[in-house]
Write a protein that binds this DNA or RNA. Structure first.
Lengths: 229, 229
DNA sequence: TAAATTTTTGCAGACACCGCATTTTTGCAT
DNA sequence: ATGCAAAAATGCGGTGTCTGCAAAAATTTA
């Protein structure tokens, strides 16, 4: 009866594995087709056919056609939140967030191949880029909750509460965690965009470090050494 | 022959005035219908009928149906940018941005009636809220350019022009203005959201001041003495 | 193997959206 | 005012998105 509870989590059942495979197939087919013909000219029918499922099934996996181009880093959010909680307790909230995000970005670097193709698709149709960032924003509230947890439970004892799956309880977060989550996410976005714009000249790690330094310094006016003329 | 005045700019031609009227009628009809029946259940046909135009005409004004629920603060962006340039030169970039945004928010407060109704619609269907923020984001690049102008960091040689006649050429802005524009916008968004969540208890001005103080201070960990202010 | 559960699929239909041709409105010069 | 050109509104037809429903297929459980 109650023996199977976490099929969704790992790859317990064969059923879940197939679902993951189908979803991945749809995403890959979509990205590949979009890279070739342009995202606007790729129909649900074409994606479904390339993935080997019916068009109707597509909508069992994605609420909207555009979502398939955007649902890439779906698990990043979870990993970042875990990273925030596991960061050394000596770090400030901003530093903890920075470290968690840096780790996740390094992780993403592994799948550089797929992300590169994906980025190309988004670049050709900014409409989708915007949509992707919106999805990212949905994670912001959860990140804020995690940050609140870290800030609230000070070091000394392990803040590892077993039942943190409260899920329902949304007690109007404090301003600070919300702000930190939103601003941190935004900073990373800017870093990525800036790096994408001039990939050749810049090392992403530098840009990443730079934006967080700026944040920590309170966004002061840039030094004068550049402002000649 | 081709003496093309700028009828588009102000209220010169009667033609433009009618266009504005039609657009406003569509927006108002849409918001009103959405407030009553829920945004999801309002078709283009219904909006068009309420506004007294044909359904086809609707798409002459808006690229997508959802846009009609979102195109409210279309001119805020321009006013904010002007505010940034006109701010006292003694202010830091962050302060200039803060002042410009505070002024615009005060301006918006005038049309409190419409915005309140509009906010209610967005609250009932977060899908649209997301879309609205996306529109907001499009302004971010322009805001970054304005900030760059104020700071005086124009890369790419001839700093003399500063004109927008390049049209296509967007010379890869510096990191700092981009970051400031994005983070500033994000901070305001968080402030608005936070205030909306607990409208009864909070004064918006306080929240607004608070987020910018946090930014200027580098987002330090919140101290234990909360009642300091 | 049979039953229960979940997923897939086809189908019908509402609606969003776009291109095109036609009609109406507006701006301007005569 | 009046005719002409530009621009907008409209109607129509078609493609594509997305949903609900019920049957069929696959998978798990008993």
């Amino acid at each position: 009866m109650q023996r199977v509870r976490e099929k969704d989590a790992a790859e317990g059942g064969l059923r879940e594995r197939k679902k993951r495979a189908t979803r991945a197939a749809l995403v890959e087919a979509a990205v590949r087709l979009a890279a070739e013909h342009g995202a606007e000219n790729v129909t649900v029918e074409a994606i479904s056919e390339a993935a080997g499922v019916s068009p109707r099934t597509f909508f069992n996996y994605f609420d909207a056609r555009d979502d398939v181009f955007v649902m890439i880093g779906a698990e990043s959010s979870t990993r970042i939140r875990r990273g925030v909680l596991e960061a050394p307790s000596g770090l400030s909230p901003l530093e903890a967030l920075r470290e968690a995000m840096a780790a996740e970005l390094a992780e993403v670097e592994q799948e550089h191949e797929l992300w590169s193709l994906h980025a190309e698709v988004l670049r050709s149709s900014p409409h989708l880029l915007v949509r992707g960032l919106c999805v990212h924003m949905a994670d912001e509230i959860e990140l804020a909750e995690t940050l609140a947890e870290r800030v609230g439970s000070r070091p000394g004892g392990r803040a590892e509460d077993s039942g943190e799956e409260d899920g329902q309880r949304r007690p109007a977060l404090d301003l600070y965690p919300r702000l930190l989550a939103a601003v941190g996410s935004t900073a990373v976005r800017v870093a990525v965009e800036h790096w994408c714009a001039r990939q050749d000249e810049l090392v992403f790690t530098d840009v990443f470090r730079e934006v967080f330094e700026q944040l920590a310094a309170g966004l002061p006016a840039p030094s004068e050494d550049v402002g000649r003329r």
